[in-house]
Write a protein that binds this DNA or RNA. Sequence first.
DNA 1: AAGCGGATGTCCT
DNA 2: GGACATCCGCTTA
Length: 193
Amino acid sequence: MDVTAEFFDRPVAEVAASLIGATFLVDGVGGVLVETEAYDATDAASHSFNGETARNAAMFGPPGTVYVYRSYGIHWCINFVCRRGAAVLIRALEPTAGFDVMAERRGIENRRLLCSGPGRLTQALGVDLGQNGRPIFGPPFELRQSTSVPPLVVGPRIGISRNQDAPWRFGLSGSQFLSKPFAREQRLRQAAG
DNA sequence: AAGCGGATGTCCT
DNA sequence: GGACATCCGCTTA
């Protein structure tokens, strides 16, 4: 079933957890989400923490807005906006559709490395600033909820300098397609969404 | 395992 | 003018 606006109108950590197992495609290319992170406006690590600017304006759009930004001057990263100033960073997926296109864009064949990281994922799916501010509910995007509740793991987020201990990174337990492994004791008992 | 260069936009002083 | 960023791939051990 396609994800609706109501799906994103919830606390951002809940949305981030619920996205694990969902299928995300851009022009038919993508796969199953296995790693996400939650950011909101009360969080010092979030781009929205110091208020709205030209760069982060999409984070203040309606639930379901796509927020794309450039990371380290080199990579693009994609987020799905939830409530105002809150968004889920899409960090990794398991490729299931468009392997040849992804391999061509990435310049590699190794399926495990195609989308295992936020910069790799956008490169493989052809995401850039052109998608910033657009709604997720329509072409070129497809976002379908998982029919089952997958086993989740949770832990601290990657690559941030502030609020490093907040456990707002979510992953599919045992996945081979994560950007980095999760520590074992951080397994999450989650009734779903 | 750990270090580092790449390359650029954003925001602050 | 400058610090630093939701990272990646390559190099050295």
